[in-house]
């Protein structure tokens, strides 16, 4: 009885403490939960992986802002790593807005450091051959149209200021239709713009990485194959990391996997507390009725 009374009157600060610990402990201990992969993520992974046969490049677009980066940054890392390890030519691109550029840069640095500038087959990663970092160019929609017609002409230089023309990776890239896949990682509706313009107009396959909140509304586009695949929220990113690990045999710190462990703890904690709260509610109610 005492316990239920305590639960009923529980100071919310205990709950705050529990939430804080549920996030911190998995982060420090590198804790992980088993991850089951869902079809949208698997489809995306398979599509990206198939590019190693055609050698058509992948474009990773970091179209998000720092506020959604906890959820979305791991996606960029997992994709970039996959492309490098599987020997797929890859473009890193900050997207149509200025904010993404810095986040794409973080993805570049983090992943390259993690794999120590070496691919799975032992070759070292060479800029210009294995990947190219695209700069920010203003113009919004006109940029997509430009990429559709004249890829090199739209950007002219890469993010380091060197002429794109001189990079070996550009030999087979003239316009968007030479691109194997675009994966737009965004927390906003900008992914739809890529879907409509790059996908429908220029016929380039488009995949998407998005926040858990936006994922629900993208299911219809997955059904119509307007998006070839999707990573939905942190869970999607964790699934992608898991696919990387199991299929490419690489063992690195799974950023989203660990964050997902925190998520699991918090979700389960909330569910557990709600159930306890309800039990105490009923126990106390019955007790009161008995006394009446």
């Amino acid at each position: 009885m005492k316990f239920w009374l305590f639960m009923d009157k529980l100071d919310r600060r205990w709950l705050f403490l529990a939430i804080g610990l549920s996030v911190i402990i998995p982060s420090i201990t590198n804790m992980r939960f088993p991850v089951t992969t869902t079809p949208p993520t698997l489809n995306l992974w398979n599509f990206v992986d198939s590019l190693k046969y055609t050698k058509k490049p992948l474009i990773i677009i970091c179209d998000y802002s720092p506020s959604t980066s906890p959820e979305l940054q791991p996606m960029a890392h997992a994709l970039f790593r996959h492309a490098l390890e599987a020997d797929i030519p890859v473009f890193l691109y900050g997207g149509l807005y200025t904010e993404g550029f810095g986040l794409a840069r973080i993805a570049e640095e983090t992943v390259l450091e993690e794999i120590d500038y070496q691919k799975a087959n032992g070759d070292s990663v060479i800029y210009g051959e294995d990947y190219v970092f695209l700069p920010f160019v203003p113009g919004g929609l006109a940029v997509i149209a430009g990429m559709g017609e004249d890829f090199i002409g739209t950007f002219r230089v890469d993010a380091r200021g060197d002429s794109l023309k001189n990079l070996p990776m550009m030999d087979n890239v003239r316009r968007l239709e030479d691109i194997g896949l675009i994966v737009d990682i965004a927390g906003s509706a900008v992914s739809r713009t890529w879907m409509v313009y790059a996908g429908t107009r220029y016929g380039t396959p488009v995949g998407v990485g998005t926040t858990a909140v936006s994922a629900a509304e993208y299911y219809t586009f997955l059904q119509t194959r307007q998006f070839v695949g999707m990573m939905g929220g942190m869970k999607g990113a964790a699934e992608y990391e898991e696919l990387n690990a199991s299929n490419l045999n690489i063992e690195v710190r799974k950023q989203a996997g660990i964050a997902m462990a925190s998520q699991n703890f918090v979700h389960l904690l909330i569910i557990f507390m709600v159930i306890l709260g309800n039990i105490s509610f009923f126990v106390l109610k019955r007790n009161k009725e008995r006394r009446l």
Partner: peptide, 28 residues
């Protein structure tokens, strides 16, 4: 924790959907 109490049928519906959706978000 404070609000999800099954005071009546409707509150119960709210609580149960929230729990199902939350459970659906975790890894397993």
């Amino acid at each position: 924790f404070k609000a999800f109490k099954a005071r009546n049928a409707m509150a119960f519906a709210l609580l149960v959907t929230a729990i199902i959706v939350m459970l659906g978000r975790v890894s397993f």
